[in-house]
Design a protein around this nucleic acid. Structure first.
Lengths: 223, 223
DNA sequence: GAGCGAATTTAGCCATGACTAAATCCAATG
DNA sequence: CATTGGATTTAGTCATGGCTAAATTCGCTC
């Protein structure tokens, strides 16, 4: 059984490798920052994970999960996302609270618990923030979403996924009706790094900071 | 925040002090056995808990929780019993499985989670095995139950509480309809350490080992 | 190609909570 | 009241996973 610390690092590295460009290595400092530990501590754990064959470490360059490492990470991600959804659906948690509580619980639940909430939720494939939920076998759906920040003026799209990293953003989006499935049209884009003016549904308009729009993933609505 | 290990010891010591006679001290070896650690490890932790003023330690004699220690223990017990009940009621766990899963989860849940399952369960005062659930303030009901093993021939009673320490017993009792609330009459007692012959309801009879009957707590039924 | 600065790694330390082996205490027995 | 055996404590070790400070490496600039 992998220790809690090992599981946390694996999950963070997995998420970081997805946030970075394909082929890019995940650096020690990125891991340290995400885990809120010193760079030296991160190096320590990296060496341990390499020892366990869960990742390949190129010193001074970065790390990359091995297939085994990815498999382990996906198990943890599955626990996390099922828990998030369960907390939301069955216990009424707010959108921005589920991540923290799932972090606490994900190491503690048994396979049996996992199966039971999976069944209670109707075997969902998508989590509380729209992320794909890995299957028990370690398969994970690949969604071809685009960032809302990358959309052009006049385009229409549905909100399909939102980063779970920023509770304040989640609270804001929830309060303003920008939930999963909402249809949005880009009315106007500021030329450089300014906000987007977007239309929500047919009658409401909204200004959204670029930083927020970079954390929202959308599916293009049919023309 | 108390560490998981500290919480586990507190819970075990609290339960042991209730299983023993009033005023009796809880010994190092009892704690070691219950926690599945060596006696030396238990001594280590006892010294730490004494340092934290959670218990009083009389060397070579035993320990006794301080009022603060009891308060901390009751918080953990409250988490545990609410979780057990939730697992049973909302996720369909069997009677003999809830203890193990609650052990995993009890350290991980937040106050918010506790409040939410408390509400979902309708603010219960009794746990899955009939044990009182401490209130958030640290009050706990005292039930004046007797052991089924101490009942005399001809007496009638209701099953009110069962020890959660033996999953095999719980499974057995559940399968034979000896659940909480069942009315039972003692038909015959073997003279010394033999089984009891009991009647369940009006038409069924059953032989129950003395060891089992010592772990079942009952309320005398009105004559 | 030397040097600089930032990132990374190494070295050495600490707390926690296990362990074994050895010493010590205490109660019971003769 | 001395002895002895079981319970308890002490002493010393280990693994885990943090930390800081110091050394090292790498990429970039001159």
């Amino acid at each position: 059984m992998l220790s809690e610390a090992v599981q946390d690092y694996l999950k963070s590295i997995y998420k970081l490798s997805h946030a970075s460009q394909a082929g890019e290595m995940v650096t020690t400092s990125l891991i340290a920052e995400r885990m809120q530990v010193s760079a030296a501590s991160a190096t320590n754990m990296i060496k341990k994970l390499a020892e366990l064959r869960l990742l390949d470490h190129t010193p001074y360059q970065g790390v990359e999960l091995t297939p085994t490492g990815v498999k382990m990470a996906l198990e943890i991600v599955r626990h996390h996302r099922l828990l998030e959804l369960y907390l939301r659906q069955s216990l009424g948690y707010d959108w921005d609270q589920v991540d923290a509580e799932a972090d606490r619980l994900e190491h503690a639940i048994s396979e049996d618990f996992e199966d039971r909430i999976d069944r209670a939720l109707g075997f969902p494939t998508v989590g509380a923030h729209g992320e794909p939920i890995p299957s028990k076998e370690g398969d994970i759906a690949v969604h071809n979403y685009r960032r809302l920040a990358d959309m052009a003026e006049g385009e229409r799209c549905w909100i399909r996924q939102v980063s779970d990293r920023d509770p304040a953003l989640l609270r804001y989006l929830d309060e303003h009706g920008l939930i999963l499935g909402t249809e949005v049209e880009i009315r106007e884009r500021a030329p450089f790094r300014g906000p987007l003016r977007i239309a929500i549904g047919v009658d409401r308009e909204h200004h959204l900071g670029l930083e927020a729009a970079e954390q929202i993933y959308v599916e293009i609505a049919a023309a």
